[in-house]
């Protein structure tokens, strides 16, 4: 995985789901200067983001603005951390809608994010597979 390495997961899907440069910077804080830390982050994201994702769905269904805001905030941050910047921006919008209690718009936005979330997960799996 290198910054210059083109994303080959879906050549027709516009901008890359995951910016590998973000993951690259973790070499600098990795204890051995390698990719170990980055890969652990990806695994954690893959394992734990699903629960929060479902929490968002429940918060919207239950019209719970505060729960939605916290969950969106949390996923915005971790999604950005794995380099999925387009998806992180969507979570930012979702968080803003939760803050202003626009739950209907939030429901529509969340529905439109399903594809991107799946694309990110796929890209992360691919990176993991490459690395092992």
């Amino acid at each position: 995985m290198h910054a210059t390495h083109p994303d080959r997961s879906d050549p027709n899907a516009g901008p890359a789901a995951v910016d590998r440069k973000v993951l690259d910077q973790y070499r600098e804080i990795d204890p051995s200067g390698g990719l170990g830390l980055a890969l652990r982050i990806l695994r954690i994201y893959i394992d734990s983001s699903g629960e929060t994702w479902r929490g968002i769905g429940q918060a919207i269904a239950g019209r719970d603005g505060e729960a939605l805001r916290l969950a969106a905030h949390s996923l915005k941050s971790s999604t950005a951390s794995v380099g999925a910047l387009p998806l992180a921006n969507l979570f930012r919008e979702l968080e803003a809608l939760a803050k202003s209690a626009h739950m209907d718009e939030a429901e529509i936005l969340f529905a439109s994010m399903q594809g991107e979330y799946a694309r990110v997960l796929a890209a992360l799996h691919e990176i993991l597979a490459e690395a092992t």
Binding site: Y26, I29, I44, S78
Partner: peptide
């Protein structure tokens, strides 16, 4: 931090 990814990154940065 409630967010495990951030937690892990902060720890890595500070331990480094």
């Amino acid at each position: 931090d409630d967010e495990p990814v951030t937690r892990l990154l902060i720890r890595a940065a500070l331990e480094k």
